[in-house]
Design a protein around this nucleic acid. Sequence first.
DNA 1: TTAGGATCTAAGCAACCGCTTAGTATGTGC
DNA 2: GCACATACTAAGCGGTTGCTTAGATCCTAA
Lengths: 208, 208
Amino acid sequence: MTAQQVSGQHEAELLDEMWRHVTPDAARRMLIAAAHAFADKGYHATTTRDIASLAGMSPAAVYIHYRSKEDLLFQISKIGHELSLSVLSDVPGKDPVERLSNAVSSFARWHAEYHTTARVVQYELGALSPEHHATVVELRRGIEGRMRSIIAEGVEAGLFDAPDLRGATLAVLSLCIDVARWYQPTGKRTPEQIGALYADLVRRMLMS
Amino acid sequence: MTAQQVSGQHEAELLDEMWRHVTPDAARRMLIAAAHAFADKGYHATTTRDIASLAGMSPAAVYIHYRSKEDLLFQISKIGHELSLSVLSDVPGKDPVERLSNAVSSFARWHAEYHTTARVVQYELGALSPEHHATVVELRRGIEGRMRSIIAEGVEAGLFDAPDLRGATLAVLSLCIDVARWYQPTGKRTPEQIGALYADLVRRMLMS
DNA sequence: TTAGGATCTAAGCAACCGCTTAGTATGTGC
DNA sequence: GCACATACTAAGCGGTTGCTTAGATCCTAA
């Protein structure tokens, strides 16, 4: 077994872990298949036949567990947003500097490790129905709010220098999110290393 | 005329300016229509009928000037990459610090001002044919190389502290490119302000 | 044993896709 | 006036799309 195969297996395990509470089994397999296909080719370029075929089932089987192709996208987007939001909850750290480092490190690492889901989450928002889009936008507001409050703590403590708080928050989130675009499992940087590198860059970017 | 209409007209003028050397007139109108549609809905969700309709012509007229829908995407992607590459050419500045600030400021501002084209350039790479994709990847290598050499100059001069040169380059480019994803013309930050904010953040991120 | 729900497939429908064909208008050189 | 290239449109072709229908199979409980 090559290193790349090990890496591939590791990712498959991560995905299984990620969607573990989706039941029944066939529904979970279809979500995983859809997430891979959407990330690989984009939502609109993926057919329901692609998804069914990846999940090892007939095209009609999709509609036993999901209302529509868009419903599949919404489930992936919703769960994905909730997971990436949970990464920014109760971030440990004895002071704002440590808390920001941990937040950035975890958030950037998440976008590398779960880059497949993260790509769907970040780049297929526009394909959601207006109602589903609104649900997801609300989750995104939560993500921005949590990162902003971590930075704000540091500013109030006089540790960070960020005259434009919202601008700085935007830049930090943007930096982490964009990891999903360029990250490749075959690249030389591991998700942990990316998290460490980014935590350091952001610390220097904001510390006074 | 409202502020938003002025802004809209300003953007339309920028686009006309951007594609000014595309002839004949109908071919240029179609490129502009395609760029807007691709940025708005994505390449695969855009039909050739959408493009023709936006350009005020019949569906068949697309094929007078372009081989295929993918050819339209390639022209947009190629010209877009060349323009964003030219932004990083001959960056002025009396020292590496000033040069980096100018490079980041210009590059980030470009991704805000031309966010329509930039989105196509950044998010529809995968829809290109293998040959066209290779052409564009070559241009992207040039972009990365120019930013890296600017940072490297500062490191060699002892002004920047970047133990991981390629990692730092990746982060800086990533930060600027992601502006195209979140930028909204109706937002409160102008492209110039974003450029200034980002130049400052990156300077602090890299200076020793 | 068997009724009944849940889960799946084979087949196919209406709509839409990228692109082509055949033919029409327009302008230009001679 | 006429031949001819360019630029366009109306119509439509073969193939694909998301999704539905009708029916087969399986599991479970009485």
